[in-house]
Design a protein around this nucleic acid. Structure first.
Lengths: 242, 242
DNA sequence: TGGTATTTGTCCGTATGTATC
DNA sequence: GGATACATACGGACAAATACC
C-alpha cells in the first residue's frame, strides 16, 4: 500500500488534530514551517491542507494561518458522511455490526426499476435486499441493484459480507464517485416488518448512485434507515464573494 | 466582482456541461488542449477540473480523460446541497419564496441552549424563529441562534429578508464553513402548527454550525423540514486504495 | 506481445498578489 | 511600511495508466 506524499502528510496532520496535538481553535504551523518539517514543496503541503479543509478539520485564513475547527465534542456517534461503508463506520464507532441477506435475485431492468435506478432497461442486474444490524438491532434495510456486466459472479455468501470489499479487492474496481439523495418516506410494510420504528411512521431514505473508475454507474442502492438512529454529517464551504 | 482565472474556467466548463456542449458520458478535451484554449497553465486547468469533480460534474480517469457524469435527468427539484441559501435555491428552482418571522428575541445562552448549540454559556445571542415558504406552503421552520458579538445590530426587518445577505454585504463577513448534521425527529406542537405534515408524524431536521472567516462559530441553526418535500443532495469521492 | 504516444497524477521551484498583524 | 502567511499562477519533470499500432 504505497501512498502519496501529500496523503501521508494529510493523514499525519489529521491524526495530530484528532489527538489534540493541534487542538480546536489552534493555528497549524505555517505552510513554510510544514515544508521544512515534512521536507517537501509548498504545493504538497497545500494539497494536504486542502483535504483537511474539505473534511471540515481546518479552515484557511488568508494572511493569518490555518485554524483547527475539528471539535471532538461535536462529533456524533453515527457519522455516515463521506463514502464510508457500513462496516468501516461500525468499526470506527466500536459497535458490533451484522448483515443479513433477506433476498438475492438476478433480474432484468424493467420500466419501474429503470425509473428508480436510472439503469437502462434490459440490463441484467443483481437485486439484493439486506438488513444492517448494529448491536443486534436493525438500523438499515438496503436494496442493492448491481449491474452484472460490471459486478460479476456475486453470490449470496459474498453479500453476507461486505460487497464493497469484494468489488475493491477481488474485482480490482475502484469505487470513485457517489451521488446521494436523502429524503424521508412513509414506512412500508417491509420497513415495519424489520425495523423497530419506535412510534415513527416513516424512515430516512438515501438513494445512492455509484460510479466506478471508468465513469459507469454500476450500482444503485436505496438505504432505508431507522429514523431515531439516523444521523448524516455534511461539511461544506461557501464560495467567497469579493 | 473580479474572479480568478481558475474560477472563470470552472464556471465556463460547468456552463458547457449543463448546456450539453459536453454531454453526459463525454470526455472533456484533454488538459493540454484546454491549456491552449484558455491560454493558461496546466495547474490552472487542473484546479478548475478539481472543482467540477468535487461537485460531481465530472470524473477524472487516469490515462484516459475526464468524463462528464452530470446527468440533467437525475437532478432533483429541491437540491439543497452545498452551502446555498434558501433564497438562492428558490430562485434557481424558479419558485416563489417567502420568509415570515415568528419570533425575534435577544437572549443569553443558558445550559440548555449551550447543550444544543455549543455556544458558550453567558454569550449574548439573537434567537429568531422563521417560517420558510415556497409557493405559499411552509416548507421549513428555522430556529437561528446568532452570536451578538459577531452579528451586530440585527433587526426583525433584516430577518424578514436574507440574514446571510446582510451578514455578507453589510458586515463584510465571509461565511466560509458549515457543518451539518441531519436527523429525523418526531414533530412537536410547533411543527404541527405551521407545517402541513401530510400524515407524517415527524420532520427532517438539519442542525447547522456556521464558522466565519476568523474560524469562530457564530451561528447555530436548526431547520425543521416538511418531510415530503425534503431532498438533500450529497456527492463524495472514495479515496483510492492501491 | 511490445513499443510509442496520449492523458492524467504527483511533485518541485519560483514569482507575484493580497490579507493580517 | 515591513514582516509574515496564505492565494494564485506559471513552467517543468517524471510517474503511471490507457490507447493504439
Amino acid at each position: 500500500m504505497t501512498r502519496t506524499k501529500y496523503d501521508k502528510i494529510y493523514r499525519d496532520l489529521k491524526d495530530k488534530i484528532e489527538n489534540k496535538v493541534y487542538a480546536y481553535q489552534d493555528l497549524l504551523p505555517s505552510e513554510y514551517t510544514l515544508v521544512e518539517q515534512y521536507e517537501c514543496s509548498r504545493n504538497t503541503i497545500r494539497r494536504a491542507i486542502a483535504n483537511l479543509v474539505s473534511e471540515g478539520y481546518v479552515q484557511s485564513l488568508h494572511g493569518k494561518g490555518v485554524r483547527v475547527i475539528y471539535d471532538p465534542y461535536q462529533q456524533a456517534e453515527y457519522i455516515l458522511g463521506g463514502v464510508e461503508t457500513f462496516k468501516e463506520s461500525s468499526i470506527r464507532n466500536k459497535k458490533v455490526y451484522g448483515t443479513k441477506v433477506v433476498c438475492f435475485q438476478e433480474l432484468i431492468v424493467d420500466k419501474e426499476i429503470n425509473k428508480m435506478t436510472s439503469i437502462p432497461e434490459g440490463t441484467e442486474i443483481y437485486y439484493i435486499q439486506r438488513l444492517r444490524l448494529l448491536d443486534e438491532k436493525v438500523l438499515i434495510i438496503d436494496h442493492n441493484y448491481f449491474r452484472r456486466d460490471v459486478v460479476k459472479h456475486l453470490t449470496e455468501e459474498i453479500a453476507n459480507g461486505s460487497i464493497y470489499e469484494y468489488i475493491e479487492n477481488e474485482l480490482g474496481e475502484n469505487i470513485v464517485t457517489t451521488k446521494r439523495f436523502m429524503t424521508v418516506e412513509k414506512a412500508n410494510v417491509n420497513d415495519e416488518k424489520y425495523i423497530g420504528l419506535n412510534g415513527y411512521n416513516c424512515v430516512a431514505v438515501i438513494n445512492n448512485y455509484t460510479f466506478n473508475a471508468k465513469g459507469i454507474m454500476f450500482e444503485f442502492t436505496q438505504s432505508r434507515h431507522k429514523p431515531d438512529s439516523f444521523v448524516f454529517f455534511d461539511q461544506a464551504q461557501r464560495i467567497k464573494k469579493h
